[in-house]
């Protein structure tokens, strides 16, 4: 379990009631990683959802399966990751690795599915909070894709 006061400060969870955040905090586990530890492996199913509490992680994706050719970005403290793979059950599109000591609040895939499969409205509200985060990520990748398309047009001309 993690301190509920931490969750109270997470923007994406303000849609939950205080009582729902309290119960969610009992289900989350605080985990610490060292620099270099891998939290999510590209090509494998994400073990769960992660909320970055402190430290820095690098998100990287191999290009055409080549380790040396990567696309890379980072995740701000207070954001969730791992949700695409947890939601659709398919392999993660990118790896997430700690580049400093990192602490996260995590919810295993099994516990997440149990939570949203229960008849507890908190499960549905939490799922919707995760989908809102995903919608923002989708907006970001869409915007990046539009920029890329424009650049490709310039290259082709």
């Amino acid at each position: 379990m993690i301190d509920v006061r931490i969750l109270d400060g997470i923007e994406s969870l303000t849609v939950l009631s205080a009582e729902e955040r309290e119960r969610l905090s009992n289900q989350l586990v605080e985990v610490h990683y060292e620099a270099g530890d891998v939290l999510v492996r590209e090509g494998q199913r994400s073990p769960g959802l992660f909320l970055l509490l402190s430290g820095s992680v690098d998100v990287s994706k191999r290009v055409q399966g080549d380790e040396q050719r990567q696309m890379s970005t980072d995740i701000p403290v207070g954001e969730w990751f791992g949700m695409v793979s947890v939601l659709d059950g398919l392999p993660a599109t990118a790896a997430v690795a700690a580049i400093t000591p990192v602490s996260v609040a995590s919810l295993s895939r099994e516990d997440f599915l149990k939570l949203i499969g229960s008849h507890d409205p908190m499960g549905a509200h939490f799922l919707r909070a995760m989908l809102r985060c995903l919608a923002l990520q989708l907006e970001r990748v869409n915007a990046a894709l539009i920029t890329l398309r424009r650049q490709v047009e310039e290259v082709r001309q």
Partner: peptide, 9 residues
């Protein structure tokens, strides 16, 4: 959510 994941991928 599944639909959003599909679009994301």
């Amino acid at each position: 959510g599944r639909d959003m994941c599909h679009r994301f991928r």
